[in-house]
Amino acid sequence: MIKEMIVVEGKDDTAAIKRAVQADTIETGGSAIGQAVLKRIALAQQRRGVIIFTDPDHAGERIRKIVAAKVPGCKHAFITQEQAAYKGDIGVENATPETIRQALQSLRTEYNAAVSQLTMEDLIAAGLIVHPDAAARRLAVGNALGIGYCNGKQFYKRCAMFQISREEFEAALEYLNQ
């Protein structure tokens, strides 16, 4: 049984989580998260801890940002769009139980007062921003680091929040360049 409550988008995500592990979930009901849901998530964080496990798409990232901003100190589980895809649909509900278990074993914890070991210049030099293929490169490196896809500014913030070391970053870049 996983101690933390897992925040997901809907009932199909809950079903997928329960096929993979024993855990309790809180469903946001989509990207229009109400105050009542945020209060439940905050209470869960105080009592048991919270893992945010949303879809690897725009709506899922929006939910992740809202919850993380309102409820500090959450853990994050990420899967790639490829792992979440089925017949053109992207979602946690499409992931295999093994993929879900792997994501829950590779959690990232945010540190709100964190200082990044990386600079924006590092991201530019790596071709992750201000580069014709920056979005694709960020997707590959974000997946390798287990922090998901996001724009350049958010990528920099996530590297700080999740305390991505220079060694981890360089290993992910090496993976990208192979």
Results as ranks from 00 to 15, higher is better:
Ala23Pro: 08
Glu27Gly: 04
Leu38His: 07
Ala23Val: 12
Ala59Cys: 08
Gly148Cys: 03
Ser116Ile: 05
Ala171Asp: 13
Glu168Leu: 06
Arg138Met: 06
Ala44Tyr: 03
Ala160Phe: 00
Ile100Thr: 04
Gly146Ser: 09
Arg158Ser: 03
Ala125Gln: 15
Lys18Thr: 09
Gln22Lys: 14
Ala140Asp: 08
Ala113Lys: 15
Ala172Ser: 10
Gln35Gly: 05
Phe53Ile: 06
Ala171Glu: 15
Ala136Glu: 15
Ala95Arg: 01
Tyr175Ile: 10
Phe53His: 05
Val92Asn: 00
Ala68Gln: 13
Ile124Glu: 15
Val130Pro: 02
Glu9Lys: 01
Lys70Trp: 06
Cys150Phe: 10
Lys65Ile: 05
Leu176Gln: 05
Gln163Trp: 03
Ala32Val: 05
Tyr111Met: 10
Arg101Ala: 11
Gly10Phe: 04
Lys87Ile: 03
Leu107Met: 11
Asn177Phe: 12
Gly49Ser: 13
Ile124Gly: 06
Gln178Pro: 02
Gln45Pro: 02
Arg138Trp: 04
Pro97Glu: 14
Gln105Val: 07
Ala23Gln: 12
Ala32Tyr: 11
Thr99Pro: 02
Ile90Glu: 03
Asn143Ala: 05
Ser31Leu: 03
Val7Ser: 06
Ala144Glu: 07
Glu167Asp: 15
Ala59Phe: 06
Arg48Asn: 14
Gly73Trp: 08
Ser165Gly: 11
His76Asn: 08
Glu93Gln: 12
Arg108Ala: 05
Gly60Glu: 00
Lys75Glu: 14
Arg108Glu: 09
Leu123Gly: 00
Val141Cys: 04
Arg64Leu: 09
Ala134Lys: 12
Asn112Ser: 09
Gly88Ser: 12
Ala85Lys: 12
Glu93Asn: 09
Asn94Phe: 14
Leu123Asn: 00
Arg64Trp: 05
Arg19Ala: 12
Glu170Asn: 13
Ala135Trp: 08
Ala135Thr: 14
Thr25Phe: 00
Leu139Ile: 08
Lys3Asp: 15
